[in-house]
Design a protein around this nucleic acid. Sequence first.
DNA 1: TCTGGGGTCCTAGGACCC
DNA 2: TCTGGGGTCCTAGGACCC
Length: 445
Amino acid sequence: MYALVDCNNFYVSCERVFAPHLEGRPVVVLSNNDGCLIARSQEAKDLGLKMGEPYHLVKPLLEQHRVKVFSSNYGLYGDMSRRVVQVLSSFTSEVEVYSIDEAFLNFSGLKWLTKGEDLLRYGQRVRQTVLRDTSIPTCVGIAPTKTLAKLANRRARLHGTNGVLLLETPAQWEAALADVSVDTIWGVGRRYARKLLDMGIDTGLRLANMPEHWLRRHMGGVVGQRLWRELHGQPCLEWNPAEWDDEDQLHPAHASRRSVTCTRSFGRPQHDAAALSEAVATFTAKAAEKLRRHGVAAHLVTVILGTDRFAPGTEPKTHTAVVSLSASSSDTTRLAQAALLGLQRLRRPGTAYSRAGVLFSGLEPEGQGQLGLFSAPAANQQRSQQLMQTLDGLNARFGRQLVRLAAQGTARNAAGQVQPPAWAGRSAHRSPLYTTGWNELWEVR
DNA sequence: TCTGGGGTCCTAGGACCC
DNA sequence: TCTGGGGTCCTAGGACCC
């Protein structure tokens, strides 16, 4: 049995923890660059505000109903997420962190819980403890497969007992499947939903009642087949448990990551070579830090430049250039050299770009594969490792990006005042870094 | 004027190589 | 007339998830 714990409206909950007066008021959180709505409180949903809606289109409505607007504050959300997972891992060591606001618990190990009642009560205790220790509300769905646990979770708030729903028997999950539209099933996205509805397959149960080979044939091969089995109570999605390391960070137990990226939209289009270089160097530094945090090094550096995605026309809006390294690296200076080389190959003078980024792939554990004919001598590698450790240490202690490459440009103007670069994205409504920034700690007066 | 970012897996054509 | 086949890399795009 699996339990899915989902923090409903997680970003809104995080903001409300530090602004309790917003309880009961409509609240929304915007994506990076204040682009669109990515989280809504129930009151905001009731106003008809939709997920992913462009901010500039709904701004009048937000003002009319005095909706509180936040720019996204991932420093805060990431830290709150870590606290929630810490509580969850006190209930079972078998935790899989699926996203910033969801985690699966493997209840199969809890052999002493054989009766439905007991599992239900256990789920309720998980939920109450998370709420007590972090102030974050959750729902819990429990079922024999991840896909059915997801379904149980979605229905827990309205059809569960104290926010927990158990779907243990085929009769129970079939009744639930019959009561949901097919597009709410995990693994059925916009395109498949359209196709299924056109064929009259409108509920989850109708989909589950199609033959297994039909899903294999028409819904992405083995992906569709797995979906069919999951809907029939046969678990066939992988279990990727997480482990805590010495520094209290959670990592998947086996290194499954295939790539690491950092891309951003600019506040306004950029065509200047110097500005683009600074942006790419900055994104490289951020992504390289992530590589080192995961203990991996990259062989391939892909530079990404994007023009206006919404401009009419059919020409490609995304341009990429791949630079391969003779030996894998997680050193910011080495990776930035490669990225700037890629940028030079990619950039067309006079073209205005609205976003840029880097992608690292061909990953392998750090310190491996460096014995090649052309790799740097051991002494250089050791020096590079020490330098990066010092850099990460300083940035962790004194604030992100305090120590940086010259290529990233300066964050201060001639008078020494902190000033965002010309290419910075918009973030007009960000709340303070209550829990992770020395200058922004929560004040209780 | 204004429409996110980070992932996974899969497909497909063209260049290039042997 | 007839003009291979298999492999890799690059680039772009489509589907899904959060």
